[in-house]
Design a protein around this nucleic acid. Sequence first.
DNA 1: CGCTATTTTGAGCCGCGTCAATACGGGTGG
DNA 2: CCACCCGTATTGACGCGGCTCAAAATAGCG
Lengths: 245, 245
Amino acid sequence: MAQPAAEARLDLQRLRKVCSSCSLAELCLPMGLNRQDLQRLDSIVQPTGPLHAGAHLYRVDTPFHALYAVRSGCLKTYIVDDTGREQVLGFHLPGELVGLDAIYPDRHQCNAMALDTVTVCALQYTDIAALTLQVPSLQKQMFRLMSKDIASSHALAGDFTAEERLAAFLMSLSRRLQLRGYSAAEFILAMTRRDIANYLRLATETVSRVFAKFQEDGLIEVERRDVHILDLERLGALCRSVPKI
Amino acid sequence: MAQPAAEARLDLQRLRKVCSSCSLAELCLPMGLNRQDLQRLDSIVQPTGPLHAGAHLYRVDTPFHALYAVRSGCLKTYIVDDTGREQVLGFHLPGELVGLDAIYPDRHQCNAMALDTVTVCALQYTDIAALTLQVPSLQKQMFRLMSKDIASSHALAGDFTAEERLAAFLMSLSRRLQLRGYSAAEFILAMTRRDIANYLRLATETVSRVFAKFQEDGLIEVERRDVHILDLERLGALCRSVPKI
DNA sequence: CGCTATTTTGAGCCGCGTCAATACGGGTGG
DNA sequence: CCACCCGTATTGACGCGGCTCAAAATAGCG
């Protein structure tokens, strides 16, 4: 088989660097992509300049144009109801895709806000939709990604206790960070207690208290945003059967 | 433009009859489908014989082969955790698609059980995936359907009161039944109080009590499974801002 | 070094879960 | 047609987990 042309290899290297830890990697990278596909993909993936903490990537009800893959930092997605109450829908780490819920009504269904300094890749939806028609493995990957989002939405469904919820939250963060090459045992929370509590449907005070209890029990060491997991085993056992987030 | 051949029209009539109220209708039906596409679609949509109440359409961890569109009756999807506790994930009315969460790991992520007599259309996934590559409008519809599922999973996210939850549940049923040509104001629940309670993360007794309260307040008339909504307006107001299910 | 947002800690209370008993209804067999 | 049974639903009494309210401690920031 012929070696790819130098030009194509350059594209590939650039993409590999950008996408290596991305959830789209399986299809962005070599798999079944010829030089022409690579170039088209190249034009679709648009790295976007840093958002500072508090800045919005998109807001609810704005027209939908692109999906966004987080490259660095942490996003939170949330909605605000008529009565002004906020509901955090999720936290999104590098390699995770946001905006999928906007495809259906062609309008964003939630707000996406940077919790720290965030860079993303914008993926123009019309381009993605066109390319998936030509690259079966890309379509397959898109279906899988969306399917995963549907399945993971079941995570916090049950009526779990505050301890189960927080344990599941920490385990989820740990696992996802590890998948992306970070430490599974120590990390810095990008989100406030208030955001965690809101996401887990608890009161801020409850989250604070459960953090304290976990520390008393020797499960973790926690100092504000700084978390060290001391006993991954027991913490995992606490999740009972909260589905993986 | 030439009239379609008699043969194609027959297929179309059959499909229209089967799929007219189905969520896939937008793409199963005429839109951009030529005679060949129609025939291929014809081979994919496999109406499947009636399941009686209590029978399972699929079970968790079984290999994934097909998506299922409900044709008649009502399905519930649920998971059972390690401790044997059940969590109802959703109720699925005619025209709704189940099994999308199984695409990612190629294995069913929940159980699907008939609550009454249920008929479905089985859609072989490999066939669907192949056809979507050839029929852009079909791919678009698949993406939209999956997107809708992702968005709707936010419905019960917030920390709502028992009344808000039950009101939202009734409004959702009402709206979805109406979309399918049934009455928005009176219907018969296919599910037990226990299933409703479990789905809404409440106790059975609480659901019973809130039903009673809604009746006292003149919002509904309820007699076991028989529900009449008397004041759709006020019931809707009770949902506050529970996202549409 | 003050200002403010965040986090922690304490005290009291309430909505909903739990436990228990009763009522209802549909199916089955006599 | 009635008697019986069992799953479902209702209703009441009580207790608790987590929310609310309040206040202090800590950190980040201009």
